[in-house]
Nucleic acid binder design. Structure first.
Lengths: 339, 339
DNA sequence: CTGAAAGCGCTAACAA
DNA sequence: TTGTTAGCGCTTTCAG
């Protein structure tokens, strides 16, 4: 295989200087005659020249890439549709604007070991933290301390950090919408099924449900389980039902959990929503189907990704974030599983 | 904000030359005394030095990154769990070996416009093609013509390409397993529900079902629909039922489709599998649940990603692919939806 | 309109 | 053991 062509080889073939070739490659019209432009373009075509990004990056001090760190204890860190929609939105928006997305799935506590942090290879970092609040704060501080622009997804704004922007959907508000829906019927006890690892968004949802339920004197229990495993979910719920009896409403942390719950309840001879109301969260065009159809909240994960990318691109362009926080409002998807 | 530290600033602070700092940074033990090493490490720590990847890349002629192009007409190119598991496996394996994953979701026919192709920014490319065979071949040729190592996911081996490796699961074999399972019961007519855009893996599954069904004189119909939309799936199936009556078996292209089908059939008063057997494909720890539980095939998408990454890393290391093709065998997940 | 040249941060060969 | 230096591919300033 012959040598990869460079500006130099193109210049030689076209009989011009590398400066001229550089201009043509970068579409700089001023200072290049049409005749030479055509010449150069022909040489580029013939040699199959592709600009070397490292050379350019080194010169302009820009990597033209953004790093995304998804903190998750599971190696299948892309299992949740929220995450995948987020990544898709981020990726599309970045690619459209000539930026690359460098993807990293990191285990909790191992963020500092990833080459995203250890090396300087991106212009900005997007962080999707999980774990306890303190762990998340530590992660934010770690990245922020690098002196690179940072966008934090789904977590609440923190004051003492520099050059940071927070992008999230209004998960607490969404939970309040669902809770209000549920309260259209008499209700004394609710149970919420949540993942055993803490996610900021789930904290916000819990806060939303608590707020409404407290006001109405509804008791709120919790079932914690491995959300990545449908068996663990149904086992957890079955165990609760055996111990504490049937609640008035079962709140899923997300649609997958709610659907699994409906299956279990139905298998136990309970009717949804007559015997138990069930709600989900984060509906997507294709999360799955259930009967009755889920009463849930439409996720805006994809737009979150687009928003995060736009904020980052704008920050890189203008030197500062224009807004400290973006909170996307949420909408109810009415279904037949509640009230 | 002060200047980003470089080898130079570290060297200055530690009172040594940049060559020495370079050695320390890269963990080269020979030719650096312990005393200076400690000095240098202190300076690195104090300044918060992070090596600039562009500088290194330019020098060593390696980007230390792999590009993944997922060809999909939908902007939500990560919607399918097969894809997300593939990406997770690829990403983890690359990250573990010091490589980055540059993610690109590209529209069919637009591959040539992506900066992954236009610029030289990765050491190798991983391609997940879709569309008609000819389109896919064009995509492979485009990438292969770049002179970069290429791994093609899920498509069949093609002879005339240089420096290419094919990695896929044995989708045809998996389909034959399912078909054989279905044939345990009398069966005259089957219908397969497939996406309206062609995927190589689905072609292989169709071939597998055809082979077994033909041998047993089973007629095979097709329903084509937008697989990303559960409404479109149920509409498509409903339409078929109205037109052609109830088949003996309904074959889903994947689990999501099969689950939607079970819901529709049940809603129509048909019992699965008594009235209609249903099979899925590509089961994951959490695709969703159905009753009865799906008879399906366990996907090996995550391992496919790991395999692809390993093959690529090995190719980069040794200068040539050691194997032209990797085909991972598939296993049946017995369920109650068939036979 | 075109070209010469400096230098971005880094590695590695070689000299001291 | 340590330092000097050339040069990877590119952009940009400045001179012609």
């Amino acid at each position: 295989m012959r040598e990869r062509p460079t500006l130099h080889s193109v210049a030689q073939k076209a009989g011009v200087s590398i400066a001229t070739v550089s201009k043509v490659v970068n579409g700089i019209t001023s200072g290049v005659s049409d005749a030479t432009r055509v010449q150069v373009e022909a040489a580029i075509e013939e040699l199959g020249y592709r600009p070397n990004r490292s050379g350019r990056s080194l010169r302009v001090q820009r990597h033209q890439a953004v790093g995304l760190a998804i903190v998750d204890p599971s190696p299948r860190f892309l299992a949740d549709p929220f995450t995948t929609n987020l990544v898709a939105g981020l990726c599309n928006q970045l690619n459209t604007n000539g930026f690359g997305l460098l993807l990293y799935g990191v285990m909790p506590g191992k963020l500092g070991e990833s080459s995203l942090i250890r090396q300087s290879e991106v212009d900005a970092i997007c962080l999707n933290p999980s774990g306890e609040r303190l762990e998340r704060l530590a992660a934010m501080e770690l990245v922020s301390g690098l002196g690179q622009p940072l966008v934090v997804i789904q977590d609440r704004s923190v004051d003492n950090l520099q050059d940071v922007c927070f992008v999230r959907q209004d998960d607490q508000g969404g939970a309040e919408l669902l809770a209000a829906e549920v309260m259209k019927r008499p209700c004394r006890r609710a149970v919420m099924v949540i993942a055993d690892i803490p996610w900021p968004a789930v904290e916000h949802r819990v806060a939303g449900f608590k707020k409404v339920f407290d006001r109405h004197g509804v008791k709120l229990d919790f079932i914690r389980c491995d959300e990545t495993n449908s068996q663990a979910i149904t086992d957890g719920i079955a165990d609760y039902l055996d111990r504490s009896g049937v609640p008035d409403v079962l709140v899923g942390q997300n649609d997958q959990i709610a659907i699994a719950a409906i299956h279990l309840l139905t298998a136990r001879g309970l009717e949804v929503p007559r015997d138990v109301a069930v709600t989900g969260y984060n509906a997507f065009p294709f999360t799955g189907v259930s009967s009755p159809a889920l009463t849930t909240i439409r996720s805006r994960a994809y737009e979150l990704g687009v928003t995060a990318a736009s904020a980052l691109l704008d920050r890189l362009e203008r030197g500062a974030f224009q807004q400290r926080e973006y909170v996307l409002p949420l909408e109810l998807v009415p279904g037949n599983s509640a009230p």
